[in-house]
Amino acid sequence: MKKRTIRFICLLLALLMIGSLAMPYLARANSTLDKLQQELNGIRDNLNNIKDETERQEANKASLQRQNKIILSQIGELEKGIQTAQETLAQKQLELDQKRRDIQATDDLFQQRLRAMYVMHNSGALSTLLGVNSFEELLTASTTLSRISVSDTELLKKLAAERAQMEADERYIQDRIAELETQLSQQESKKNELAANIQAANSSLTELDAKQEAEEQAYAAKLAEYNAARAQAEAEMGQSSGGEFVGGSFGWPVPGFYNISSPYGWRTLYGKPDFHTGIDIAKSGQIFGATVVSSLPGTVQTVRYGSTGYGYYVIVDHGGGYKTLYGHLSAIYVTPGQAVAQGTPVGAVGSTGNSTGPHLHFEIRAAGQKVDPMQYLKG
Rank of each mutant, 00 (worst) to 15 (best):
L40M: 12
S146V: 09
A367P: 01
Q91H: 10
L138C: 05
L269S: 10
L94D: 15
A160K: 11
K80F: 04
S284T: 04
L16T: 07
G131A: 14
Y25W: 06
H276T: 04
L16V: 09
S351L: 01
F288L: 11
A235Q: 15
P255F: 09
G368A: 13
I279L: 03
Y172K: 12
S127H: 10
G76N: 15
N68H: 10
Q199M: 00
Q301V: 11
N48M: 12
R365V: 09
E77T: 06
E188F: 11
R100A: 14
G368V: 07
G321N: 02
E167W: 01
T206V: 02
T153K: 13
D45N: 06
S149C: 05
A125G: 15
I70T: 12
W252C: 05
K157N: 10
S134Q: 09
P255A: 08
L269A: 10
L21W: 10
E236A: 02
Q65H: 00
V316Q: 07
S189V: 10
L130I: 13
L40D: 08
I43K: 04
G278E: 06
R7S: 11
Q338M: 09
R230K: 15
A282T: 02
A341K: 00
I103P: 00
V254W: 03
A220P: 02
L40I: 13
Y172C: 06
F362Y: 08
I173H: 03
A29S: 11
A228V: 03
T88K: 14
Y264R: 11
L145H: 07
R28K: 13
G321D: 03
N30Q: 15
L11W: 00
I279H: 07
A125H: 13
G327E: 11
D34M: 07
G251M: 02
L145Q: 09
G265I: 06
R101C: 11
E95M: 05
K378W: 04
Q98M: 08
A62G: 02
H318N: 06
Y333A: 13
G238H: 07
A341Q: 00
I18F: 07
